[in-house]
Design a protein around this nucleic acid. Structure first.
Length: 281
DNA sequence: GACCAGGGCAATA
DNA sequence: TATTGCCATGGT
């Protein structure tokens, strides 16, 4: 069975088992989304916007650019096999993956992703969302046919100074954000898509405000490198609860979990994060 | 009023 | 390379 079709600029997704807008958006990989008056999830990625309307067989994606969202939603990637593989790891992982079965790892816009996870450092999701929305509303352009604002372009971002970011509540991350546009343009010269994961990570780490964990998030959520395992406070907690008692560093936790999940590390990480940080089990 | 949030930087050893 | 103090802000 075909998993999706496009008709009149609407993507019809024929899948409810392994794709849920709610789970895919709420699992912490993206911050610019909301539930509208009709009860539908709306997501904004870069300068694009999509609304998810539930149908009998799945979801209709109503957007300004269907091709962008076919790519964004990774509709050509079969997460069913990944899910089965992770379920087979243990009874515990089966329970965790069952809760987050509808999660699909998205392909978010790189510049926005880098900015988002710089903001995420030592922060909470509610406040991260607020900061990113204020940056967009005050520096981005309105998306045609909606009341939502695009994430600022690199050119728009260049005009923002440290004072601006402080004024919208970004705190000490303002220094990193004020030079991000320049740093990103320099970063682009390495031709990110062409690099293998370790090389791309080394290059990301040169961006001010990007450390180990943030780099891993960018690798996973913008470049879809599934062999990384971002370790934050929540993953650290669940690791000590269910995987090992020995006190080790976050990078060592990442190394051991990658050893366990291999090419499916990114998905395992999202299931675990969703289970612990969002659902709260 | 302390503690916490999807940590990272810069100094130090 | 590994450790440590510090960093802004809003929620609980």
């Amino acid at each position: 069975m075909k998993k999706y079709t496009i008709e009149n600029n609407i993507i019809h997704i024929y899948d409810k088992e392994f794709f849920s807008p709610k789970e895919s958006l709420e699992c912490g990989q993206i911050f610019r989304f909301y539930v509208n008056g009709a009860g539908n999830y709306v997501v904004i990625s870069g300068s694009n916007r999509a609304e998810f309307v539930e149908t009998k067989e799945g979801y209709d994606v109503v957007s300004n650019d269907p091709q962008y969202f076919v790519d964004f939603l990774n509709l050509g990637y079969d997460n069913c096999e990944v899910w089965r593989n992770i379920c087979g790891k243990s009874e515990f992982m089966k329970r965790v993956a069952e809760v987050g079965r509808g999660i699909k790892i998205l392909k978010n816009e790189p510049f926005e992703t880098i900015c988002s996870f710089i903001v995420s450092a030592n922060n909470n999701i509610k406040r991260i969302k607020g900061i990113l929305n204020r940056i967009s509303a005050q520096a981005g352009s309105k998306i045609e046919g909606s009341e939502d604002y695009a994430f600022p372009t690199i050119a728009q971002f260049k005009g923002l100074d440290e004072g601006f970011f402080k004024s919208i509540g970004a705190g000490y991350r303002s220094r990193y954000l004020s030079c991000l546009a320049e740093n990103y343009e320099e970063f682009l010269k390495c031709n990110p898509q062409s690099l293998d994961t370790p090389s791309l990570k080394r290059r990301l780490l040169k961006i001010l405000g990007v450390g180990e964990k943030v780099a891993d998030c960018i690798l996973l959520f913008a470049y879809n490198r599934y062999d990384v395992f971002p370790v934050d406070v929540w993953i650290e907690r669940i690791y000590y609860q269910y995987f090992g008692k020995e006190n080790i560093s976050r990078s060592e936790i990442a190394k051991r979990l990658i050893g366990e999940f291999g090419e499916n590390s990114g998905y395992a990480q999202q299931y675990l994060f969703y289970y612990k940080a969002i659902i709260g089990e």
